[in-house]
Measured scan of single mutants.
Amino acid sequence: GKELVLALYDYQEKSPREVTMKKGDILTLLNSTNKDWWKVEVKATANDKTYERQGFVPAAYVKKL
């Protein structure tokens, strides 16, 4: 199945390749080969529509579930 990670801290994206997350968010882990930056998929809701974004977050800010 898919691997999930838990956001340990809030993170505000600093570039278009990154994604914003809030502490407590559960994210889908896409790639953890880089030890510093993990690629995740974030589900977000805006205007009653759910959309998914993929991007990088600092590996130290998340932990595998």
Rank of each mutant, 00 (worst) to 15 (best):
V42G: 11
K43M: 15
V5M: 04
V57P: 01
L8G: 01
K2G: 09
W38C: 05
K2Y: 13
L65K: 02
K14F: 04
E18I: 03
K63C: 15
V19G: 02
P16R: 09
R17L: 14
P58M: 04
D25T: 06
D48G: 15
K23Y: 04
L29N: 00
N47Q: 10
G24K: 02
V19I: 15
K2E: 09
K22A: 08
K23D: 02
L8W: 03
K49D: 09
D48F: 08
A7W: 01
V5E: 00
K64T: 08
E13S: 15
D25Q: 13
W38K: 00
A44E: 15
K22M: 08
L6S: 04
K35D: 10
V57A: 03
E3I: 15
E52H: 14
V40C: 02
F56W: 15
D10V: 03
D25V: 03
L6Q: 09
D48K: 09
G1D: 12
S32Q: 09
Q54C: 09
L8P: 00
D36K: 13
E41A: 14
V62S: 00
G24R: 01
K39Y: 15
A7L: 01
R53W: 06
D36Q: 12
M21E: 00
E3W: 10
T50K: 09
K63E: 14
L6E: 11
K43E: 10
P58Y: 04
A44V: 15
E41Y: 07
Y51V: 14
K2H: 13
Y9M: 10
Y51H: 09
E41S: 14
Y51W: 10
M21R: 00
W37P: 01
L6T: 06
W37Q: 02
T50G: 09
D25W: 09
T20E: 02
A46F: 14
L27S: 02
T28N: 07
E3Y: 11
Q54F: 06
L27R: 00
K35V: 09
N47K: 09
A7F: 03
W38R: 01
K64W: 07
N31L: 07
T50I: 13
V5I: 07
R53K: 12
V40P: 01
P16N: 10
N47W: 11
W37D: 00
S15T: 12
K22W: 08
D36W: 15
K14D: 04
R53N: 06
K49Y: 12
L29P: 00
A7P: 01
V42W: 06
E13K: 13
T28W: 13
K64C: 10
F56M: 07
P58T: 01
E41I: 13
Y11Q: 02
D36I: 13
M21P: 01
G1L: 11
T50E: 15
K64V: 11
K64Q: 08
E52P: 15
G24W: 05
K22V: 08
T28Y: 12
S15C: 12
V5W: 06
A46Y: 14
Y61E: 03
A44N: 13
Q12P: 05
K14C: 13
W37F: 05
G1H: 14
A46T: 13
K49G: 13
G55R: 02
R17K: 11
A60P: 07
E18F: 06
L27M: 14
A44W: 15
K14M: 11
K49W: 09
T45V: 13
S32E: 14
T28V: 15
L27T: 01
P16A: 12
P58N: 02
S15Y: 06
K35F: 07
A59H: 02
D10K: 02
L4A: 06
E3H: 12
K22F: 10
T45S: 12
D48T: 08
R17N: 13
V19L: 10
L30K: 04
V5F: 05
E13D: 04
L4S: 07
L30P: 00
P58K: 04
Q12D: 14
Q12L: 14
L6Y: 09
L27K: 00
V62N: 00
D48N: 13
E13H: 07
K23L: 03
V5N: 00
L4C: 13
I26W: 04
P58A: 02
E41K: 08
V42F: 08
T45R: 11
S15I: 04
T28P: 15
S15K: 06
V42I: 11
F56E: 04
R17T: 11
E52N: 14
K43G: 10
G55C: 05
V42T: 15
M21L: 07
P16L: 08
K39V: 14
L6N: 02
P58G: 03
T28I: 14
I26Q: 04
E3N: 11
K63Y: 07
Q12A: 09
A46N: 14
K22G: 05
G55I: 04
S32I: 05
A59Y: 03
Y11F: 05
A46V: 15
V62A: 02
K39G: 04
G55E: 00
A46L: 15
F56C: 15
W38E: 01
G1F: 13
D25A: 06
R17G: 13
D10N: 08
N31S: 14
L29I: 03
D36Y: 15
K14A: 09
K39C: 15
V62H: 02
G1N: 13
E41M: 13
E52C: 15
P16I: 09
V57M: 03
F56A: 01
N47G: 12
L8K: 04
A59W: 01
G55S: 00
T33P: 04
I26G: 00
K35W: 06
V62P: 03
T33V: 10
K35E: 09
E13Q: 12
E41C: 14
D25M: 12
R53V: 08
Q12G: 07
M21V: 10
Y11L: 01
T50A: 11
L30T: 05
Y51L: 11
K43D: 08
E3G: 10
G1Y: 14
L4R: 11
K64R: 12
T50N: 11
I26P: 03
Y11M: 00
K35Y: 06
A59E: 03
D25I: 03
D25C: 08
V57F: 00
Y11C: 04
W37R: 03
N34R: 08
L29C: 05
P58W: 04
K63M: 13
V62F: 05
Y61S: 12
N31Q: 09
L30D: 01
L27C: 08
M21I: 15
D48L: 09
E52F: 15
L30C: 08
Y9C: 15
Y11N: 01
D10P: 05
W38N: 00
D48H: 09
Y61F: 12
Q54V: 13
K43H: 14
K2S: 10
V19Q: 02
E52Y: 15
V62C: 15
A60W: 10
E52R: 15
W38H: 02
V19N: 01
Q54M: 08
V19D: 01
D25L: 04
A7M: 02
E18Y: 05
D25E: 09
V5Q: 00
W37L: 02
Y11P: 02
A46D: 14
